[in-house]
Structure formats: structure tokens, C-alpha cells
Design a protein around this nucleic acid. Sequence first.
DNA 1: GAGCCCATGTAAGATGTTACATGATTTA
DNA 2: TAAATCATGTAACATCTTACATGGGCTC
Lengths: 177, 177
Amino acid sequence: MKPTAVTWAVLGLIALEPKSGYDVKRIVDRSVRHFWAASYGQIYPELRRLEEIGWIEGAEAPRGGRVRRIYRISGAGKRALDAWLRAPDTRVELRDESLLRLFFADTMPHEDALTLLSWRREGYRGMLAYLRGLDDGQGKDPPFVDLVYQWGLDYCEWGIEWCNRQEQRLRRLLEAA
Amino acid sequence: MKPTAVTWAVLGLIALEPKSGYDVKRIVDRSVRHFWAASYGQIYPELRRLEEIGWIEGAEAPRGGRVRRIYRISGAGKRALDAWLRAPDTRVELRDESLLRLFFADTMPHEDALTLLSWRREGYRGMLAYLRGLDDGQGKDPPFVDLVYQWGLDYCEWGIEWCNRQEQRLRRLLEAA
DNA sequence: GAGCCCATGTAAGATGTTACATGATTTA
DNA sequence: TAAATCATGTAACATCTTACATGGGCTC
């Protein structure tokens, strides 16, 4: 079994609580999506693979006449997930178009380049608003789920402040020149 | 012409200074790689596309008997790059396996979960060391190239401190429970 | 009964990495 | 002379998104 990128996200969510594929997608979009996205085209095939190798078990659970299949994690699945959890790997892949623009911004007039920086700040603000919108106000998440949510909030706040500081620094620098 | 993900990275680097495909790859790996990676399999085909539509112009520039093709940006290419630079889009895509592990860490014993957090800190330390290694000590980068480099350093330092703070907070929280 | 949400699924296409093939030049 | 670097390129594979097809149930 060669795990794919969605393997652990799907398996982990099923482990938290039995779910349908549709549920997995919905929860992904409301929780890990900003650092680990997954689409239907990945999720449904992955569920079949996971069931084939016996890491999850599916059962028909129709709601009325509506087809529905609920998956729960197996003992083998739990062991596999636990082994993955303990891996020390921390690889990060990032695609940040705003940073790419800033990298090439030296060809622009200073004011226009600084505008890019203000847009970056707005990007962080937008993400912060999005994350805050996910909070249902109940505040009952387990500590590490909450930790990761907090990471998102803290990262955005740091980013906003970073843009402010750099804008001030660059204004001084560019006006002096 | 439908721009791909590498279009602007390649065009921007050619705009800074005429380059071969090999140069583009080398410079990408030493500058924008941590937020905008590109492989040979993307770069060489992209250079042909860009030449076909007239945004860059290639010329044979062999070194000894070694084949080599140098590309420079055209007027149309400059205009296209400038138009892209002014786009307000700030989309970010992130794949952070360490955050995914932390998200599922509530199933583990507390000490093991906190170990994940310390590994995350080591990940930031490693990236910080990598970024510092890129600095040639000359310090002659233009302001916005330097800004983006600084973003990398600052982000890593923030991340290290964030892990430290959260580890302390969680130790208190989990020991109290 | 129109429109939205629940629910499963896939085809097509875009995207991206890895590994290799080829061959010249430089360095140890 | 062996190994590293310069240099171009692609085939195969892996990954991921988008858009659509299908159909039932719920709400206005």
C-alpha cells in the first residue's frame, strides 16, 4: 500500500468519527482545508482503496431512499494512522502568488510596489475573517484541533503586522533614496 | 495564451536578466523555491511556449562545444509581466503535513503529541538554516527581493516562537487536566 | 415545483515530480 | 580518469481540480 496525499487526512477524519465521503469533504473544507485541501476526485477513490486494504470498513446507511455509505476505521487502520502520526517529517509545500509578485516588484514604481504589500495584508485579513467565520462559538474542540485552528489565526495576525512593519520600513528606505 | 503556474516565475526571472533554462532552474532553487517551486519538466516546455507567443526571444549561445540557449524578455513580455504584477490576487496554497499531524494528535498520549510540536519547531529551524545558507553575505539584493527573503526568515522565527509558546501553554493546560 | 442541500461518482484536463538519456566541460 | 557541473530535454507517472451526471429529499 502506497499512501497518497489524501490518505492520512481521510483516514484521520474517519478515525475521529464514522463518516460518509460527503461528510469527509464537508469537514475537510471546514477544518484542514487551508493547509490540506482535498477534492471529491481524491476522496471517493481513496475511500475505496482504504476499504480494499482493510483500514476502514464501509456499510450502507441510506437516509430514506437516498444512497449513503458510512465508513469506520478498523484496528489495522488505527495502527497505520498511529504509525504515521509519529513520523518526524515536517515537509511544507507553499504556493504564494503574492510573494512571487513582491519578489519581482523592484521593476515597478515604489508606490505600486507598496500597493502589492497592502494587498498582501488584505489577503491575510480575508483569511482571518474566513477562519473566524468557521468558529461556531461553542469552543469545545479538543486541545490539538484547537491548536491548529489557533495556528491559522496567529499566522494571519502575524502576517498583517509583518506587512505593516515592512511597509513602514520600506517607505523610510525608499524615500531616503 | 493561457498562463500556467510557472509562466510568471520564468518570465520574471528572464526579465531580471537574460538566462538559459538551466539558469532559471538554478535561480528558482536558490530564491523563490520555498514558496514557488518549478521543475525542469515545467521550465523547458514553458520557455518554448513563451518564445512561441513572443514574450521572450531565444538565441543560441554555446559555451565551447556545449549547446546553450539564452532567452531575453521582449516588449510584449514586459507588458504582460507588468499587467500580472498589478493583479490584486493573493491566493495561497499550502500543504503542511506537520499541521495535519497536530490536527489528529488528540488521539495520542500528551507527551507524544507535544513531541510533534517540538518536531515542528525543528522543521522551522531547518528551514531557517537553509535560508540563511542562501545568503552570500554580499547583501546587495534590491529592496523587494530582500523583502521576500526577509519574509522567509521572519516567518521561521515567528514559527519557532509560536511552537515554544504553545508548548508551554499546552503543558500547563494538559497537566491541569 | 423551483431551488437548494444531500450523496456518490467519474472523465478530462491541468499540474507537477522523478528519473533518465545525452553529451560537453571543469575540477579533483 | 573519475566525478561534478553545465546544459537540454522528455517519458512516465503521480497528483489534483473542475465540471458534470445522476438522483433523492427538504423547504419555500
